[in-house]
């Protein structure tokens, strides 16, 4: 058996493989949880492009903040957003941009 055919025989559990891939267009959530959050306010409801899937799955920091992660892990993504899209009055060149790591439950497919 080749390693590819072995992999083809395995069914990964839900959430085990990343939901998004590099280049996918996503939107960050627009919600305002009370307490511990890790998506800064200025980045809510923004359109973004997936630049990288963070290799190691991690716990949801927002749940971990309350001791509720129960060992469940998910994917973090490095997303790219032009600064002009974040700040309509941004004065620098259109190529200037921002990167941020976001846990999967903050991202929606566009």
């Amino acid at each position: 058996m080749t390693s590819q055919s072995i992999a083809d025989a395995v069914v990964p559990a839900l959430g085990e493989t990343p939901t998004f891939k590099i280049g996918d267009v996503v939107r960050t959530g627009t919600r305002f949880p009370v307490g511990h959050y890790r998506l800064p306010m200025y980045l809510r409801g923004k359109s973004a492009v997936i630049e990288r899937v963070i290799a190691t799955m991690g716990v949801d920091n927002e749940e971990e903040g309350f001791g509720r992660n129960a060992g469940s892990k998910g994917h973090y993504y490095r997303i790219a957003i032009p600064l002009k899209q974040i700040w309509t009055d941004y004065r620098g060149p259109a190529s200037d941009s921002l990167r941020v790591e976001v846990f999967e439950n903050w991202l929606e497919r566009v």
């Binding site: 890790r38 998506l39 800064p40 980045l43 963070i54 190691t56 991690g58 920091n61 973090y76 490095r78 600064l83 620098g92 060149p93 190529s95 200037d96 941009s97 921002l98 990167r99 941020v100 790591e101 976001v102 846990f103």
Partner: peptide, 15 residues
Amino acid sequence: PDDVEIIVSDSTAMV
């Protein structure tokens, strides 16, 4: 210079 792209990385969680 303006023709150099600035990339700001905002650290938020595990990276």
